[in-house]
């Protein structure tokens, strides 16, 4: 461990804000890249199940 204490790690000799902003931006962008395809996949399955149910309803009411 390079730093003496936890507050030292946050402070980073005055460079803390720069370093931590960078890591925060990185985390945001990485998470966005994982979450956004997962969300659109979920949306796809929601849409398709809804469509399936609708079609079943239509075919049921016809018969």
């Amino acid at each position: 461990m390079h730093f003496e204490s936890f507050s030292d790690l946050i402070e980073m000799g005055g460079h803390g804000p720069y370093v931590w902003t960078c890591y925060a931006i990185a985390a945001t962008i990485l998470i966005y890249n994982i979450v956004s395809p997962l969300l659109s996949k979920k949306q796809f399955f929601d849409e398709q199940t809804r469509r399936l149910k609708r079609e079943q309803r239509i075919s049921n009411s016809k018969s």
């Binding site: 980073m12 460079h15 720069y18 370093v19 890591y23």
Partner: peptide, 10 residues
């Protein structure tokens, strides 16, 4: 100094 640690993302 410590700003160098950004290299690990950049």
């Amino acid at each position: 100094g410590n700003s160098f640690r950004i290299i690990y993302i950049h």
